[in-house]
């Protein structure tokens, strides 16, 4: 009887574990898909930014800010550095901040 009870408990838990695992996978898939969609939108926005912003500094600021947003997505979601040691995450994030900032200062 005890054995049967124990056996039932295992049988009941297994689908729950699998369901949680599937939910986790679905969540991760959605996260990557959303990131891809966001990157596509940002790319299109940077191409058409010239039509919206006629003033050069505003246009440049928009384009380089979009570069930062895209870099942040790649760093945190695609490269999975959001869950990596902070030093490495900040190194990569600083790259997509510092380089566009220098380029902005050169162009403006």
């Amino acid at each position: 009887m005890l054995f049967n009870e124990h056996s039932n408990e295992v049988n009941l838990k297994e689908p729950i574990i699998n369901a949680n695992k599937n939910n986790g996978e679905s969540h991760e898939f959605l996260k990557i898909s959303a990131s891809w969609f966001w990157l596509i939108l940002l790319t299109l926005a940077s191409v058409f930014a010239g039509d919206i912003f006629t003033q050069a500094p505003l246009f440049l600021a928009t384009v380089f800010f979009i570069v930062f947003l895209k870099g942040q997505q790649i760093t945190d979601v695609f490269m999975e550095l959001k869950h990596a040691p902070s030093l490495w995450r900040y190194l990569l994030l600083s790259y997509v901040i510092v380089v566009p900032a220098i380029l902005f200062l050169i162009y403006v």
Partner: peptide
């Protein structure tokens, strides 16, 4: 995979620099 994402990241800066601005 991370090397491939780096190649992508480089293009993300290269594209506006050469084609958009």
């Amino acid at each position: 995979a991370c090397y491939w994402h780096m190649v992508d990241m480089l293009w993300i800066i290269l594209f506006p620099l050469v084609y958009v601005i």
